Simulated assay, not measured.
Amino acid sequence: MTEQGRRKRILGVLADRPFASVRDLVALLDVSPATVRRDLDKLHEAGEARKVFGGIALLGGAARTHALPFGENSDLAVDAKAAIAECAAALVQDGDMVIVASGSTCYQLGVLLSRRPVTIHTNSMPLAAMIGTAGVCQMVLSGGTLHREPGILYDHEDRAPDFNASRLFLGAQGLCPDGVMESHPLIVRTTRMMLERTDEVIVLADSRKLAIRARHLTCPVERISTVITDEGISTDDSAALREAGVRVVIAQAGARA
Rank of each mutant, 00 (worst) to 15 (best):
3 E>N: 08
3 E>W: 06
4 Q>G: 15
5 G>F: 10
6 R>A: 03
13 V>D: 01
13 V>M: 11
14 L>F: 05
15 A>C: 02
16 D>N: 11
17 R>H: 07
22 V>Q: 03
22 V>H: 02
27 A>Y: 15
27 A>E: 14
28 L>S: 11
29 L>W: 09
32 S>V: 08
35 T>L: 10
38 R>Q: 10
39 D>K: 11
39 D>W: 07
41 D>N: 05
42 K>P: 01
44 H>F: 09
44 H>P: 05
45 E>C: 04
49 A>E: 06
50 R>A: 14
50 R>G: 06
52 V>M: 11
53 F>Q: 06
57 A>F: 13
62 A>D: 13
62 A>W: 07
63 A>K: 00
65 T>N: 02
66 H>V: 10
67 A>E: 15
70 F>A: 07
72 E>G: 05
74 S>I: 08
75 D>N: 08
77 A>H: 05
77 A>S: 14
79 D>I: 03
83 A>V: 01
87 C>Y: 09
87 C>E: 15
89 A>T: 02
91 L>A: 08
91 L>T: 11
98 V>P: 14
99 I>S: 07
99 I>F: 14
100 V>E: 01
101 A>W: 12
103 G>S: 03
103 G>A: 02
104 S>A: 14
105 T>K: 02
107 Y>D: 00
113 L>W: 13
116 R>H: 00
118 V>Y: 10
118 V>A: 03
122 T>W: 14
123 N>F: 15
127 L>E: 01
127 L>Q: 04
128 A>K: 00
129 A>L: 14
130 M>A: 09
136 V>S: 09
137 C>P: 05
143 G>I: 10
144 G>F: 05
145 T>C: 03
146 L>F: 11
149 E>M: 12
149 E>H: 08
149 E>Y: 10
153 L>C: 06
155 D>L: 09
158 D>R: 07
161 P>L: 01
161 P>R: 00
163 F>D: 00
163 F>C: 00
163 F>M: 00
164 N>A: 12
164 N>S: 10
166 S>Q: 05
167 R>Q: 08
169 F>A: 02
171 G>A: 05
171 G>W: 06
173 Q>T: 15
174 G>N: 01
174 G>D: 03
177 P>R: 02
180 V>R: 01
182 E>L: 13
184 H>F: 12
184 H>V: 07
185 P>M: 10
186 L>M: 12
186 L>Q: 09
186 L>Y: 13
189 R>F: 11
191 T>F: 14
193 M>Y: 09
197 R>G: 07
198 T>S: 13
199 D>L: 12
200 E>G: 05
200 E>P: 14
201 V>Q: 03
202 I>K: 15
205 A>H: 12
205 A>W: 10
206 D>F: 04
208 R>D: 13
208 R>S: 15
208 R>A: 15
211 A>H: 07
214 A>N: 05
218 T>W: 10
221 V>C: 04
223 R>I: 07
224 I>N: 00
226 T>S: 01
228 I>P: 06
228 I>Y: 01
229 T>K: 00
231 E>A: 15
232 G>T: 05
235 T>D: 11
237 D>A: 14
238 S>F: 00
242 R>P: 10
242 R>V: 12
243 E>T: 12
245 G>I: 07
247 R>M: 06
248 V>Q: 00
252 Q>C: 06
